[in-house]
């Protein structure tokens, strides 16, 4: 699979990671080698294997609709980098 500098740029933006030009070049090469390695799996014949959506042989794990205790407000906001009264504070976003 071809990984260009632009692909890395796009992916880094999606992950909100700032990368400089040098890093973009370096990561393009590294990501390509990782994906090439994973591409080895394509050599396997999986014609008769169902796609897995989960790694454990589990299904139908439910809980009943019963209340459990929520966190105290103090605890909830304890590690927030910015808070305002009872709220988490974040840089202003406009729709």
């Amino acid at each position: 699979m071809d990984i260009t500098k632009n692909t890395v740029k796009h992916v880094s933006h999606l992950a909100r990671i700032d990368l400089c030009d040098k890093e973009l070049d370096k990561l393009a090469v590294q990501l390509k080698s990782i994906l090439d390695f994973i591409d080895k799996l394509k050599e396997l014949d999986v014609k008769d294997v169902n796609a897995a959506s989960h790694i454990l042989p589990l299904n139908n794990v439910f809980r009943e609709d019963t209340l459990s205790e929520s966190l105290p407000l103090e605890e909830t906001l304890k590690n927030a980098p910015q808070k305002n009264d009872k709220f988490f504070g974040v840089p202003k976003v406009i729709e």
Binding site: R63, T66, L67, S70, L71, T76, L77, K86, F87
Partner: peptide, 17 residues
Amino acid sequence: CGCSTEFGSQPNTQVCP
């Protein structure tokens, strides 16, 4: 999760990990 869905409560009082 087991947090309440009640509308109009004090902010951030119906939250958990």
